[in-house]
Nucleic acid binder design. Structure first.
Lengths: 321, 321
DNA sequence: TTTCCTTATGTGACCGCATACATTAGCAAG
DNA sequence: CTTGCTAATGTATGCGGTCACATAAGGAAA
C-alpha cells in the first residue's frame, strides 16, 4: 500500500533511522491507517527467541507464590518480555508435563518453584539449553541458576527463637512433604533445632496438613486436646499459624502465655493478628525480581557473576511468642 | 535420520494412524533418541492459532484476582492451552499497552478484569476479532463476553443488611475509584442503599484508600476519631475490613456492639477473624472457570448460548454485624 | 569524466510446521 | 492384464517475519 517492499516496512518498525524520512512517514501512515499489528509469532520463529518466560508455581492464589510472579513480571515487562504461568498443584508429573509443553512453546527461560523435580524434567531442561532458575529454596544440585533462601536455616532460626524464649515443648505444623522440598526442609530445621537443644521430638507433635487456615486451626485443636500439650507451636506457614492462633483465641487459650505460636512467610496479615504473629520474613517479591534480572542477564549473554543468590530471611519477633 | 520426509514425521506426531506401523516405530525411535520437541511457534504461525490466552489483572498477589486465573488455568490446561499473564497496576494505559503486546503475540482470546477500558484498548480488541471476556463486573456496553456479578447490587445488599440490623450511621471504606469500576459500583451500591432508606450520606464517612490491611486499620482509626462516630462500616474489600476489625480489637472497641463491620469478597481469612466477618461471597474461581469454558466454546466455533453470565453473589452473615 | 563510497531500498532464502495435492505401490475387481 | 481404488509417503507452497546480501541512486574525490 505504501509501494515499498516488506523489508522497508520491517525497517520502519525496528530501525527507523535507516529509512528515508519521506518513505518512513508514508509507511507509518499506512501502518496507522490499517491498524497493523506486527506478528510476534512469525518474528519469534525467524529469530528463534520468543520473549516469553515460563513461571511454574504450585498454586496460583497463594500470595507466597504470586508475589514472586509479580516481581518477575515487573522486571521482565520492562523489556517487553511476558510470562506464561503454570500451576503444578504440587505434582511432579504435572510439572514435567508443563515444562515439556512450555519448552515446545520455545520459552526463552524458565522459573521453577522449589528444587525437587522429576528426572524427566531435569533432562528436558538440560536438553533445551535455556536459562533455568530455581526459586524459594537452595538446592543441593542446582539445574542452573538459583534465587532463594535456606528454608531449613529459617525454620531452625524460628525454632531456636522459641527455645531461647524458654519453651521446651515445641510442636510443628506443616504441609505434606511429598515432593515439597521447602516444607521438608522447614521440618528438618525445626527438628535440628530441637536436637541441638537436646529437646524431645514427639512424633505426635508433628502434624502435616493442608495449606488452609482451617487446617491450621484443626491442627491446633488436635494439639490442645493432646496430653501432654505443647507449650509452643512452630507453623511452617503463616496460613497455618493464623488458623492455630485464632483457634486459641476462640478457646480462650492465651497466646503466648499458654501457647506460643510462630509462623513462616510474613504474609500481610501476620502483623495484624492479635497478638501479632512472630514469623520468618522471606523476600518473595525480591526473589521474583532477582530471578527476572538473572534471566535478563542470561538472555543478553552477559556474564552471570553469581549463579546462586541466597537472599536470606529475617526473623520477625512479635507478640505471639 | 529415519529416512522419511518431514511430512511423515509430522503425521507420526498428529495422526499416527495414517502411518505404517513399521515407519512409525522407526520415526518414533529417532524422536525419542534425539529428544525432539515439536515447535509450537512454527505450528502457531502455520495454523494461525497459538493456544495461548491472555489474562489481565490489576495485580498478581491478591487472591481475589489470582483465584480467577487459577480457575481459567484449570479449564484451559485440559486442552493444552496456556495463560499469558499481565498486571495492569490499575492503569488503563498499562492495560492498553499490554493488550496491544498480547495481540501482537497472537493470543487466541483475552480476559480483562473489570469493564473500564481505554478507547484504544476497545478498538484494538475489536480489530483483532478474538473472543474477549470481561470479568468481575457487569458492563453497560460489553466488548464481547462477560462473566461476573453486579458489584453494585452486592454492595447494596451488604449495606441493606446493615440497615436491617438497625444501624443508621454507616460509613464506607473503599479504594480509589479512578479507573476502577468494581470499586465505583460498590460505592454506588452503598450510597443507593442509604438513599433508599433515607439515611444521611456524610462525605467524611466515605474513605478511599489503598488495598492493604494497614490502610483499612488507618481508615477505621480515622472514623473512630471522628465526631459523630459511625455505628457501622461497610468495607469494599475484606482486606480493608480485616484492618478495620483488628483496629477495633486493638482499641477495645467492641464489634459489633460498638461498631459493626461488613466486608466484601469472602477471602479465606474472613471466617477466621474474631468476630467472624460478615461479607459478600463472590465466585472468583468460578468466574475463571466459566470464562475458560466460554473461551473454549468460542474457539471451537460453538454457538455461545449466553454471552453475559451473571454468577451472582452471596451475603454471608457472621458475627461482625 | 571516471571511480568509489554512502545511503536507501529490494531480493531471495529460511525459520519449522501445516495444507493441499501429487506420486507411488499394492491389490482387488473386471 | 488392465483399470481403479486405497494406503503410504512425498512435494510444493505459504504463514509473516528476519538475515545476508544485491542493487540502484547520488555525491565526493580523483
Amino acid at each position: 500500500m505504501a509501494k515499498v517492499s516488506t523489508m522497508t516496512v520491517a525497517r520502519v518498525l525496528r530501525e527507523p533511522g535507516k529509512v528515508a524520512e519521506e518513505t518512513r512517514s508514508r509507511v507509518e501512515a499506512v501502518l496507522r491507517r490499517t491498524g497493523y499489528t506486527p506478528d510476534l509469532v512469525a518474528r519469534s520463529l525467524a529469530i528463534s527467541r520468543t520473549g516469553v518466560v515460563a513461571v511454574l508455581v504450585p498454586h496460583l492464589g497463594h500470595s507466597s507464590f504470586t508475589d514472586t510472579i509479580q516481581g518477575m513480571s515487573d522486571v521482565l515487562a520492562e523489556d517487553g518480555n511476558h510470562i506464561l504461568v503454570g500451576a503444578t498443584g504440587f505434582s511432579l508429573e504435572k510439572e514435567e508435563a508443563l515444562v515439556r509443553a512450555f519448552l515446545s512453546r520455545r520459552v526463552d527461560a524458565m522459573f521453577l518453584t522449589g528444587t525437587t523435580h522429576a528426572p524427566g524434567t531435569v533432562a528436558a531442561l538440560a536438553g533445551a539449553g535455556i536459562p533455568v532458575v530455581e526459586g524459594n529454596n537452595l538446592p543441593d544440585r542446582p539445574i542452573g541458576l538459583v534465587v532463594g533462601f535456606s528454608n531449613e536455616a529459617a525454620a531452625r532460626a524460628a525454632t531456636e527463637h522459641l527455645i531461647a524464649r524458654g519453651y521446651r515443648a515445641i510442636a510443628h505444623v506443616g504441609l505434606h512433604e511429598r515432593n515439597n522440598d521447602r516444607m521438608r526442609d522447614r521440618h528438618r530445621g525445626y527438628a535440628a533445632a530441637l536436637r541441638a537443644a537436646r529437646l524431645r521430638i514427639r512424633p505426635e507433635w508433628s502434624i502435616a496438613t493442608d495449606l488452609t487456615i482451617d487446617a491450621g486451626a484443626a491442627a491446633m485443636a488436635r494439639l490442645l486436646a493432646g496430653d501432654p500439650r505443647p507449650r509452643a507451636v512452630f507453623c511452617a506457614s503463616d496460613v497455618l499459624a493464623m488458623g492455630a492462633l485464632q483457634e486459641c483465641n476462640r478457646r480462650g487459650v492465651r497466646v503466648p502465655d499458654d501457647v506460643a505460636i510462630a509462623g513462616f512467610d510474613d504474609l500481610e496479615f501476620a502483623s495484624q493478628l492479635l497478638p501479632a504473629l512472630t514469623t520468618i520474613r522471606v523476600p518473595r517479591y525480591q526473589i521474583g525480581r532477582d530471578a527476572g534480572l538473572l534471566i535478563r542477564d542470561a538472555l543478553a549473554g552477559r556474564k552471570i557473576a553469581r549463579r546462586v543468590l541466597d537472599l536470606g530471611f529475617e526473623l520477625v519477633v512479635r507478640g505471639s511468642t
